[in-house]
């Protein structure tokens, strides 16, 4: 059961915070006047209140903002490193999973083909195709050789060959002469 002292205690707290109206203050004062326990409590609370209200405010030492910015930069670096490591780990795991999945799918497909007997048939087809390509290449080489054989005997081919060889010799002479002229080895050092 609430006593008048309980009510007075709550009112004292509210009074210290300036939250009592005039009538409540009068009731509180009336009780404090007649109750020595509440009066003693009131005195003790007032003293503590005075102590707190007269206490100074405290400021950080100079350079607080700079220290904060340094700490923030360090925290950010650490976060980036962690983010990088996590990304790397996730990427590695993802890559391995992809490789394993690919191998599993390929293995399954090969297994299905082997078990169905279709794989050997496909491989034989591939070898046959390769053989046909090889034969075609040999045929092409023979064709070119035969064309050259016939072409050499033609006067136009002989003339073309002679002109080409002549031009090559002339070019070799001009360029070779210039190289000798400008070559450091050709300088007389005596």
């Amino acid at each position: 059961m609430r006593t008048e002292c309980d009510t007075c205690g709550e009112r004292m707290s509210l009074w210290l915070d300036g939250r009592l109206d005039r009538a409540q203050i009068e009731q509180m004062e009336a009780h404090i006047t007649v109750c020595p326990i509440c009066r003693a409590t009131f005195v003790a609370w007032r003293r503590a209140d005075t102590g707190l209200t007269s206490a100074p405010t405290v400021s950080p030492s100079l350079g607080f903002v700079a220290r904060f910015q340094t700490r923030l930069a360090a925290r950010r670096r650490r976060r980036y490193v962690w983010a990088g490591l996590v990304t790397l780990a996730v990427a590695s795991v993802g890559l391995w999973l992809a490789v394993v999945a690919l191998m599993a799918v390929s293995g399954l497909a090969v297994w299905q083909d082997v078990s169905a007997g279709g794989l050997w048939g496909q491989m034989i087809d591939i070898f046959l195709a390769l053989g046909e390509t090889g034969v075609a290449c040999v045929d092409l080489a023979l064709l070119v050789t035969r064309a050259l054989e016939h072409g050499i005997r033609h006067p136009a081919f002989v003339a073309y060959t002679l002109v080409t060889v002549g031009l090559l010799l002339a070019w070799a002479r001009i360029v070779g002469g210039r190289v000798r002229v400008y070559s450091p080895m050709a300088v007389d050092v005596r």
């Binding site: 405010t57 405290v58 400021s59 950080p60 030492s61 607080f64 903002v65 220290r67 904060f68 700490r71």
Partner: peptide, 23 residues
């Protein structure tokens, strides 16, 4: 910085801890 540091200092009672808490 001042109100935050003051709160931390009064809560923790130590300038070093208050600096850390405010940061």
């Amino acid at each position: 910085q001042r109100p935050v540091f003051n709160l931390c200092y009064r809560m923790l009672g130590s300038p070093t801890e208050a600096e850390d808490a405010a940061q």
